[in-house]
């Protein structure tokens, strides 16, 4: 089981308090009527499914209930960074270099 840090509650809690929301920073098309089929496919279905360092969303369902983001290495399952929703995506390459990947 993972230990996850909620940046809103400022606590580290067991994974069972959280729900994973999948890949982070997938922006919903701002003007649906002007969005092509290919863009919808990309938004709805296509995923990077990264083997390595990737950003994902988590929600503290049994705590504050809020969404936040985390950077995790999907090979070791080790978390490398937690940050609040709305913040820009951190430099994943830099984070993985610092983690020695």
């Amino acid at each position: 089981m993972l230990l996850i840090y909620c940046p809103y509650c400022d606590v580290e809690r067991a994974e069972t308090e959280f729900h994973c929301g999948g890949e982070a920073h997938i922006a919903r098309p701002s003007d649906p009527s002007q969005t092509s089929e290919e863009e919808w496919v990309e938004f709805l279905y296509m995923r990077s499914n990264t083997k390595g360092v990737a950003a994902e969303r988590w929600r503290h369902i049994h705590g504050c209930g809020r969404f936040f983001n985390a950077v995790r290495d999907t090979v070791s399952d080790k978390f490398l960074k937690f940050y609040k929703a709305g913040e820009t995506m951190p430099d994943l390459e830099k984070i993985s270099k610092e983690a020695g990947k």
Partner: peptide, 13 residues
């Protein structure tokens, strides 16, 4: 498990 992972393990819970 609920998250993307390539570790051939998984949570004990």
């Amino acid at each position: 498990d609920q998250f993307v992972s390539y570790a051939q393990a998984g949570g004990i819970h």
